[in-house]
């Protein structure tokens, strides 16, 4: 038991350290909020115009606007949410990963705890303020029901877990190729595109053509944005809330297990650059 306590305490220590670090650059929060609000405004006017000129749509105007604005407030495509990729990528390129690997903890756990601290701060300092602005100025709705509100909260955590597990897997590839710029950062940008499009941040999956929606719903990426947003606006409701959250975590666990396998191989291959 004491070992479990110790490990929890250790991970909390890492989370707290990240929180302190992010607070050292408070100005970043303002630019991130500004960025989120600009994207929000863009999507708001875009979708308002699209809605005005279309005859029928699978979502109500109010739900649609709420969905896309909320999607910008709680987005995992933001630079602040790329901490794992940056840490592994820069760590391998400079050899700094060495200092992470001598610690008495699991490397994956360490990077996820580290990024969780950043996620907490982003949620508090960027997502929630942007959300409040959206409530007040873009007139988005409150959660469809108390259950939707709770489900949204849990589902955002699920999305964090899913995104982090995929990020770590992408980051690990750099141990093979040592090609940080091409692979990790390139795939990092691909990840943004995936979250914006396949995860349904910019266009709700509900509005996809049937065949494409089928594909998107079968893939794990919907859990990175569509699941929490659709729960919030009530597109996903009742027991479906919990099955979709379960699916987020199941994919997350799946990626973690896959990562463990890759990591076992990667560890033997580690080459650390520089003196």
């Amino acid at each position: 038991m004491t070992r479990v306590y110790e490990e929890i305490d250790r991970q909390l220590g890492i989370v707290v350290a990240t929180v302190k670090q992010t607070l050292a650059y408070r100005f970043d929060f303002f630019t991130a909020i500004l960025g989120a609000l600009l994207m929000m405004a863009l999507l708001y006017y875009l979708w308002t115009a699209i809605y005005a000129s279309s005859t029928s749509m699978a979502m109500s105007y109010q739900a649609l606007i709420t969905y896309v604005c909320l999607g910008q407030a709680f987005s995992f495509a933001r630079p602040g949410q790329r901490r794992i990729l940056v840490r592994i990528g820069a760590g391998i390129r400079t050899g700094h990963v060495l200092m992470d690997l001598v610690r008495p903890t699991d490397y994956q756990l360490l990077t996820i705890s580290d990024t969780f601290g950043a996620f907490l701060m982003e949620t508090l300092m960027v997502s929630l303020p942007s959300y409040l602005v959206a409530l007040l100025f873009f007139g988005i709705s409150l959660p469809a029901s108390p259950e939707a509100a709770f489900g949204f909260g849990v589902s955002v955590l699920g999305a964090f877990f899913l995104v982090s597990s995929v990020d770590f897997l992408i980051g690990l590839m750099a141990f093979w190729t040592m090609n940080v710029f091409g692979l990790v950062w390139g795939l990092g940008y691909l990840k943004i595109a995936v979250i914006d499009i396949l995860a349904g941040t910019v266009i709700p999956l509900t509005l996809f053509p049937d065949w494409l929606r089928g594909i998107a719903l079968a893939l794990p990426f919907q859990g990175m944005a569509f699941t929490p947003l659709a729960i919030y606006v009530g597109t996903i409701q009742g027991s479906a809330i919990w099955t979709s959250i379960l699916s987020q975590f199941a994919w997350g666990v799946g990626f973690v297990l896959l990562t463990r396998l890759v990591w076992l191989k990667a560890r033997r291959r580690i080459e650390i650059q520089g003196g």
Binding site: L12, G13, I14, V16, A17, K20, Q21, A24, Y25, P104
Partner: peptide
């Protein structure tokens, strides 16, 4: 930890070990 005082790094080591 680059951007914060060394005390915070020491504190992290306290938890880490």
């Amino acid at each position: 930890l680059w951007d914060i005082p060394p005390t915070d790094s020491f504190e992290l080591m306290r938890k880490m070990y």
